[in-house]
């Protein structure tokens, strides 16, 4: 399945880069939206997904205001007559399949699972839309700033990422690598993470607690971030409540998340 997806992806990506740049590009995924907005030439990108305007999830909500939005429906995207559609591997599969059947070239971009993936994904999008020079510049700038941010620290304070429903992420994730790069040791350890019980959190009692900011509208799932145990740790230790926008997608905006956390680490030391 995965191999097939990759083949398809290469089949579309390679000729698109070789031939001339597509003139009408539509993006239908929050993360590809941001990559496309960073890399596309003026007028080349004609629509981004509606989530791109959501301040809580998107690091480029203001820029997204300048583009018409789509809702990931095959019909509305078909009517935009795109030369290239950029989607995430897991976004609106039915719509993506339908667009492919209708003969629209679709580039599917897998999510970034770590900092190393970011340059690679940018390259993928940049090549597909024929913006090699802009992409080179963005990637070089990203790598330089990342190298400057890499913490040169002896002691790594322990930290936990804690989200709604008691979820946490381990080192082998984008969020985990952000935490590591900022100079913390993640108590969730290696791997992808998963549910961390309140008991485990209380017993580990990390020196820093990083929680997500609640979304609008209420939910039971986020109630856990207000549990007496979490509140106690937050009061006694260093803590940050971060918005998802700089963390969700593998874009150069993760540098903002890293420098945020580096500041938190310096508070502890």
């Amino acid at each position: 399945m995965l191999r097939r997806a990759l083949c398809l992806l290469l089949a579309f990506a390679a000729p698109a880069a070789a031939q001339q740049a597509p003139a009408r590009v539509v993006s239908m995924n929050l993360c590809t939206d941001q990559m496309a907005m960073l890399l596309a030439a003026p007028g080349q990108l004609i629509s981004v997904s509606s989530l791109a305007r959501d301040r809580q999830s998107s690091a480029m909500a203001d820029e997204a205001m300048r583009y018409p939005v789509n809702h990931g429906l095959a019909e509305e995207i078909w009517l935009l007559k795109p030369d290239l559609v950029i989607a995430g591997t897991f976004t609106a599969r039915a719509s993506v399949e339908m667009l492919k059947r209708l003969g629209v070239p679709v580039l599917t971009v897998p999510p970034a699972y770590g900092l190393a993936d970011i340059a690679e994904r940018l390259r993928l999008v940049g090549d597909a839309i024929g913006q090699r020079d802009t992409t080179d510049a963005v990637i070089t700038d990203f790598k330089t700033r990342l190298a400057a941010l890499r913490a040169r620290t002896g002691r790594r304070p322990s930290a936990a990422l804690y989200y709604a429903n008691g979820y946490t992420t381990g080192n082998q994730t984008l969020a985990g690598e952000i935490l590591l790069t900022a100079g913390f040791a993640n108590i969730a350890g290696d791997g992808g993470g998963g549910r961390m019980s309140l008991e485990a959190l209380a017993m580990a009692s990390p020196e820093a607690l990083i929680t997500g900011q609640p979304y609008p509208g209420a939910s039971r799932s986020e109630e856990i971030l207000d549990h007496p145990v979490v509140r106690r740790i937050r009061a006694a230790r260093a803590s940050r409540s971060v918005t998802d926008s700089d963390w969700l997608c593998g874009t150069p905006y993760v540098l903002r998340a890293i420098s945020d956390l580096s500041a938190l680490r310096q508070e502890i030391e």
Partner: peptide, 20 residues
């Protein structure tokens, strides 16, 4: 609900839990 977690909570309300 505008909250992205709310829809997943249907299972909690239908099945119940004492966690957390």
């Amino acid at each position: 609900s505008p909250n992205p977690f709310a829809a997943n909570e249907i299972i909690f309300w239908m099945m119940g839990s004492l966690a957390d």
